[in-house]
Design a protein around this nucleic acid. Structure first.
Lengths: 351, 351
DNA sequence: AACGTTCCCGGGAACGTTTCCGTTGATTTA
DNA sequence: TAAATCAACGGAAACGTTCCCGGGAACGTT
């Protein structure tokens, strides 16, 4: 070879070099029983010498498997999903799979496009955390499932689809968080709820209501406030509450950003935390430890969630486990200064 | 499976249905000039009816192109890289490319593994932000380049490799940040530098030194402190400094986490910010706005960086632009309360 | 001695495209 | 009028694998 584009060495090159057939080489490389030890070793040696690497496209063409699994998450800029992805990558790459990541930007239309893209790219399976309007794509989820590509939902699931789901017990954790606020003696507790059509919103709201009712508190329409899911949403609503004289004693927010936004607004308006108002968030982020006082929040086992979901999709691909379980992982409430006058500030945890 | 595996419709199906050859179909679909308008339309219509989608593996096998580009970043959990990735995805998906994301976890060995993996997966090009020990993989970078796969470096580059690089002017921005601290009247300014062998560390240090010398300050070994790149590193070193009586007037940190860690330690030990000590970071993160007081930091045009790098790799793949430019993007110093007694708190910017 | 088995291995089709190399009839050119 | 160009299409090889279908030794088994 003078210069020319370096041709990749193929199975044929090995066959030619050893004077055997390509079938034999193929079998030797895939550890087939019908190959004599000596020839197998010969092949392996030749392959190493020639620096052989199998062509995944050729393999995929005949086996109809890409060894790629598609991922669709709402966004990447909050470290929440990246932490899950880290766990996924670990298990998937060990199993010889590779990940195609797409983001839906909280838009069900882009999610649709992404799913179609993944399907056309012939991924072996799909891992998805839906947008807040997951029901709008329910038809597509089913279509994909029917076409033979398995799907595993995690974190944000679509309840009406019959497929494996990896989640935490949102209702229970919300209940525990609110219970904690109640035990700390806060009277007027409000819930800043997330987007209406997100399953998580309903589940966490349910937990809030249960804890409130259990302690005999009245819950009226002013106890639950619709917000978005970002820091500004929390700030805006908190400011509004205070200014119209409806200052709550404690706020349980749908997630950390909303809690932090609300907290910032409260501080700006001169409230002391947690004496005047307490705060608790959900899905502990790094920011929970950076903000002052540190924020009480529900920590999720993110990388574990990724690993479990990954393992689940692999099993589905390999045909074992035809059931579609809802796997519920353990979560934990980390209590910090934002909701308790004295407590140790727990370090951030991946759980 | 009763309903049989739904066979994907192929080019042959279209050909059969229309009674023409596969070559014609292929040409019609790829808009070849040697196809009559009417037959093209016929093919397009049939393709739509049969819900045809080309098989990327078959295409890849013959064209030797995967339309996939590989990405290798140190980590995903700080929103820094995800923001860049968002920009990349926009440009790349528009051009019909798909991204394979890998993370090196700051380890040059995993980076090596990832690059090998990407190469074996036949990506058309590689976008990489190196680990801190990039020089250790310089041989591999060159090997990949020689094998015909283009590489574009961004953010963290390997200076000795002759390939396109997309960066900001780290030295200049560090200079501007330090200059700002000097103008605010701070006397004893120290630099918390990042990992020794990272190019960025040297560049930012250079800017620090230039600003210091230009204003006639003495710079001794106590002016530059080696730290890691995480929040704990900053906290630890700041505490050490204060406790051994070497409290600085101002700290210019290698990045935001280190600055935030240092700031937290200073507050804990009773220092007022920015009166007693000022802080400035680099690569503005969301945390810069969450911490109190808000942190002065250098904002980078992250999504733009992603777009530019993506455009660059596409051009490389298509053979145009044989040069290997170093593209320098504009950055900006956002001055906030951590370094100036009165100032407006700028909103977080993607730049 | 005839017949199974078991052990290895080769031939070649198939996977779904692209693309090179014709071929044909129609039109233009010398 | 013969030759050359052209527009529009078909045939078939190629890409790098896997895998089905054999088939010939070597080895027992009756």
């Amino acid at each position: 070879m003078p210069e020319t584009t370096k041709k990749h060495t193929t199975i044929k090159d090995i066959a030619k070099k050893l004077g055997i057939s390509t079938s034999t080489v193929s079998r030797a490389l895939s550890d087939s029983w019908e190959i004599k030890k000596e020839t197998r070793e010969l092949v392996l040696k030749a392959a190493a010498e020639l620096n052989y690497h199998p062509n995944p496209m050729a393999i995929g063409l005949v086996t109809k498997r890409s060894h790629t699994i598609g991922l669709c998450v709402p966004e990447l800029v909050h470290s929440f999903f990246p932490k899950i992805i880290t766990g996924m990558q670990r298990t998937l790459s060990e199993a010889g799979y590779t990940i195609l990541i797409t983001t839906s930007d909280e838009s069900y239309e882009t999610e649709r496009k992404n799913l179609l893209l993944l399907k056309q790219n012939l991924v072996d399976g799909i891992l998805i955390s839906t947008t807040s309007e997951s029901h709008r794509n329910a038809d597509l989820y089913n279509e994909i499932l029917n076409s033979g590509t398995p799907i595993v939902f995690f974190n944000r699931v679509c309840s009406k689809i019959d497929a494996p789901k990896v989640v935490i017990d949102d209702t229970r954790m919300a209940y525990i968080a609110v219970k904690h606020l109640i035990e700390q003696g806060y009277e007027k507790i409000v819930h800043m709820a997330g987007p209406r059509d997100l399953d998580l919103t309903k589940l966490r709201l349910e937990g809030f209501l249960k804890a409130m009712k259990e302690s005999g508190r009245t819950v009226d329409e002013s106890s639950v406030i619709d917000t978005g899911m970002f820091i500004d949403d929390g700030a805006r609503e908190m400011e509004r509450l205070i200014k119209c004289g409806a200052k709550p004693d404690a706020v349980f927010a749908f997630n950390d950003p909303v809690a932090i936004g609300a907290m910032k607004a409260a501080k700006k308006l001169g409230l002391r935390i947690p004496q005047d108002t307490a705060f608790a968030g959900f899905s502990e982020s790094k920011s929970a430890l950076i903000v002052e006082p540190a924020l009480t929040s529900v920590a999720q086992p993110l990388s574990q969630m990724g690993e479990v979901a990954a393992r689940c999709i692999i099993d589905k691909i390999n045909g074992r486990d035809a059931s579609n379980p809802a796997i519920v992982l353990d979560a934990r409430l980390n209590i910090r200064d934002s909701s308790a006058v004295r407590c140790q500030n727990l370090m951030p945890t991946d759980m």
